[in-house]
Computed example of a mutant assay.
Amino acid sequence: MTVLFVALGAAVGAPLRYLTGRAVQRLYRGHFPAGTLIVNVVGSFVLGLAAGGTAPTTGVFALVGTGFCGALSTYSTFGYETVRLLEQRLTRTAIAYAAVSVAAGLGAAAAGVAIGLTVWR
């Protein structure tokens, strides 16, 4: 049953990641990968909420945390886009992207955990 929860969450998270990333990049046409940044920060926040609000062994966590957030956020794209920026000699942009992504992701996850613990436990 847990595998089904993961699959269902991923079936929602993956298309949402794609559509959100495309919409943001359409609005922001610069070199900075804003679409990936946004989905990763949102995914970190939602994962924090799930972790703070449920036990990691529950079906809810499998659906939301592993399935939805796993498909919504993407470390591989973050890594690829950072390397691509470096290859284009946009070193400052690459460093800013990496720093903002890590700091915002950690901050969003911490905020999500704090809210999850306060609201649901």
Rank of each mutant, 00 (worst) to 15 (best):
M1K: 15
M1T: 15
M1R: 11
T2G: 14
T2E: 15
T2W: 09
V3S: 12
L4K: 09
L4R: 13
F5C: 14
V6E: 13
A7P: 09
L8Q: 02
L8N: 08
L8S: 14
G9Q: 02
G9Y: 05
A10K: 03
V12A: 14
P15Y: 15
L16G: 07
R17V: 01
R17G: 11
Y18H: 14
T20G: 09
G21M: 11
G21S: 11
R22T: 06
A23S: 12
V24D: 10
R26G: 13
R26F: 10
L27T: 01
L27Q: 06
G30W: 02
P33S: 15
P33A: 06
P33F: 05
A34C: 13
A34F: 14
A34R: 11
G35L: 03
G35F: 08
G35E: 13
L37W: 07
I38D: 06
N40F: 06
V42H: 13
F45E: 09
F45Q: 09
L47D: 09
A50D: 12
A50T: 09
A50Y: 15
G52V: 09
G53W: 15
G53E: 15
A55F: 11
P56R: 08
P56V: 06
T57S: 14
T57P: 01
G59Q: 03
G59W: 10
V60D: 13
V60A: 14
F61I: 14
A62D: 11
V64T: 02
V64C: 02
C69A: 05
G70K: 10
G70E: 01
A71C: 02
A71K: 05
L72G: 01
L72Q: 00
T74S: 11
Y75M: 15
S76W: 06
S76D: 06
T77H: 00
Y80L: 08
E81N: 04
V83Q: 07
L86S: 10
L86I: 05
E87C: 14
Q88Y: 13
Q88M: 01
R89W: 05
R89Y: 04
R89D: 06
R92F: 04
A94Q: 01
I95C: 03
Y97R: 07
A98V: 09
A99D: 03
S101K: 02
V102H: 06
A103Y: 00
G107M: 00
G107I: 13
V113C: 03
A114N: 01
G116P: 05
L117I: 07
V119C: 02
V119D: 03
W120S: 12
